[in-house]
Design a protein around this nucleic acid. Structure first.
Lengths: 337, 337
DNA sequence: CTGAAAGCGCTTACAG
DNA sequence: CTGAAAGCGCTTACAG
């Protein structure tokens, strides 16, 4: 590795001067500047960011992204938005998949602290991680919560109005004439899951419909869980419609329906929280609450960058609109005319 | 930030001892060990990896992943496989999307050098990056090429047999009775694209079919390009079948077909290089050459790790099998019986 | 405008 | 078994 002192030697100056030139500091004569730049390029010199970070204690240019699953199209789009934003600011993303596993999440939070990340974006699995996040924040790392807030841990966050989205999705089903509406929801330790369930219940209540506990299926946000829940509910107590509150579970519903020989929407209507890429080309083009995932990523980057430079500013909780995209998977129970 | 010397002070030992305990070196008395561990945990101490890297010049635990688009399901699955592998080895992934832009690729290659990444996995856009990769390698960074080799730059690589896959896809169409088979292929600066085109041509030739330049559409590997190419070919010279050589272009074909009112496979048969997630739930369940993306990620991690520890070993070029998954998007032109 | 020197948080021979 | 000291590649007051 060629280092600053190699460059200094070749240019016949001190390492301090090399630093000044490379950092574009004022008060350096043009002739030295030229010599240093020439030497650096001849040597193919690349500054060592790790050393730089160590010495200047300046905020590093790396940020951590801790999500459950980058394969989920929502997170894939989010990371694109985030990356487009941070690239402008010359920052780098360290990618951490937790796979919804607590030990993996814990490992990564610690690791981000060890790597002296300037900031961390995290979609926390459960409140269990709160103590670790507190330690992380105490160490000077900026934190932004993705899609999920944590009670008792005030923090910047970015997401959508989960309650409103779920309400809109469920109401859509009700307006179409469905009454027996099941929901596949996330486990209760996630605030997001609780809010989506709340929206579902409120929509039923506001329509004067009964809330049937049979129809509230609480599972992991995975395709397998969505599949299993669908199979079970159809064996035990078939609904007319399903509000699936996550795109992974939605895939599970679709798979289960196919296996059960159920047509969507003829035999069961389906609305999803979270859209799917190329959803319009599905056998039953999916009606969905479409989170602006890319935009969430951009905003997350913006919030994080602000927090890095303004550690004491008041926290902000940003919610982006999440429209209902009507395609055909909900059909209608209503007669026309 | 609490540092090693804070821990040393509290435990009443030297920083050298702290290092030894934390690194689990032998020859430390149990009593000191206990005191150090206790002090470290009380202080909530986290080692500074950047300082560690600087001092020991040991290989860092971070590797760079430079791909065109993490939203592409192939890369999303690949990164999962890679991450599952490197997590075992306590390494971290720095994610870099090039968006097929040369300047962005250049920026990231340089950045990985500055970050002193132990290794870099890259899906190179074109041979233009070769000089930068050479510099990166000279600086001691291990490199593994993803899905693509570069002529004149011998290097470890992992991918599939593109020629064979394209041959199988095209032959499948031929066996089904199609004769007027168009292909949507990538631009020629990518070896991968050339190999897929070669497979297509060989399949036609081996079947005694003419190779019609009209039917060879060379475009970017994007949905827009696939869409535009499909619209154009149907206006000018409609084929019976299309071999789309990338999953993004495949999406473009599907979109164009929908817009043109063309049913798949009735009006045009379609086979894709690269599968799509939940392809079986599409209106026309997609027949595709399915790359083992997750497994490619795992193998990429393995290759990289080996290279990091064995800089002078001979290069290896690994090709994984990439089976044809027959669904229904190809239909058949043949009468039965 | 420029350089000598200290120090960021670590690790690792070198002594003892 | 343990500590004092040097040094990784940088940056930044401090002099001049």
């Amino acid at each position: 590795m060629v280092s600053r002192s190699d460059v200094a030697k070749r240019a016949g100056v001190s390492t301090a001067t090399v630093s000044r030139v490379l950092a574009n500091k004022p008060h350096v004569s043009q002739s030295l500047k030229d010599r240093v730049l020439k030497a650096a390029s001849e040597l193919g010199y690349r500054p060592d960011n790790t050393a730089r970070r160590l010495r200047s204690q300046s905020t590093s240019q790396v940020i951590g992204l801790i999500v459950s699953d980058i394969q989920n199209p929502h997170f894939a789009a989010l990371v694109r938005g985030l990356e487009d934003y941070v690239f402008q600011h010359e920052m780098n993303i360290m990618l951490c998949n937790t796979d919804e596993k607590l030990d993996r999440e814990a490992f990564y939070i610690e690791r981000m602290q060890s790597e002296r990340a300037a900031g961390v974006l995290i979609n926390p699995i459960s409140p269990n991680s709160t103590p670790m996040l507190e330690a992380l924040r105490r160490s000077g790392t900026a934190i932004v919560l993705l899609d999920n807030e944590i009670e008792g841990f005030p923090c910047d966050s970015i997401g959508v109005d989960d309650r409103a989205g779920a309400y809109a999705a469920t109401s859509h089903l009700i307006q179409l004439g469905y009454r027996r509406i099941a929901t596949i929801g996330g486990l209760h330790h996630q605030l997001t899951a609780r809010k989506r369930q709340q929206g579902y219940k409120e929509a039923l209540r506001d329509a004067g419909l009964p809330i049937d506990d049979w129809f509230i299926l609480l599972t992991d946000y995975t395709e397998e869980a969505g599949y299993a829940a669908t199979i079970r509910i159809f064996r035990e107590n078939p609904p007319e419609a399903i509000f699936s509150s996550n795109n992974s579970t939605t895939l599970g519903v679709i798979r289960a329906a196919a296996e059960l020989g159920l047509r969507i929407p003829d035999d069961v209507a389906l609305v999803s929280f979270d859209d799917l890429p190329y959803a319009e080309f599905l056998q039953s083009p999916l009606t969905a609450i479409a989170q602006p995932s890319y935009q969430i990523g951009v905003e997350a980057g913006r919030l994080l960058e602000f927090r890095i430079h303004n550690p004491t500013a008041p926290y902000r909780n940003v919610e982006l609109p999440s429209p209902l995209i009507v395609r055909t998977s909900c059909g209608s129970k209503l007669r026309i005319g």
